[in-house]
């Protein structure tokens, strides 16, 4: 069990790394959009993407710390599942915003 939680921490640290990646990605996109004379505000999508991932990380962190606080395993699973859904929605929003921003830039730069 402890091993599982350690592995979960690897995921959390990885997600924190991706938040930084998305912020730098946003800064890159801002410069590139200026270069091809497209609306530079598009880079905000990547800032939003990093914010959604930050919320997902918080929910994942809470789910790890919640493990020892609920007595009934089924209740624990229900509670973890509910917070997990929010985490998944946040990650989906993060991925969707990132792919829209990078896809639009790729399309514009490819012309």
């Amino acid at each position: 069990m402890v091993k599982t939680i350690i592995a979960e921490w690897l995921f959390v640290i990885g997600q924190v790394g991706l938040i930084i990646v998305l912020i730098i990605f946003g800064l890159i996109l801002r410069k590139l959009l200026r270069l091809i004379r497209k609306p530079p505000l598009f880079w905000i999508l990547l800032v939003l993407s990093s914010l959604f991932m930050l919320v997902a990380v918080v929910f994942h962190f809470l789910s790890i710390t919640e493990v020892g606080s609920v007595e009934d395993p089924v209740d624990l699973m229900r509670s973890l599942g509910a917070s997990g859904i929010i985490e998944a929605i946040m990650l989906l929003a993060s991925g969707l915003f990132a792919v829209i921003a990078s896809g639009m830039y790729f399309r514009w730069s490819h012309r």
Binding site: V21, V99, S102, G103, F106
Partner: peptide, 12 residues
């Protein structure tokens, strides 16, 4: 979500 993130980094 992981696949979407991978796709966005690939496009970058």
């Amino acid at each position: 979500a992981a696949i979407l993130l991978w796709l966005s980094f690939l496009l970058l």
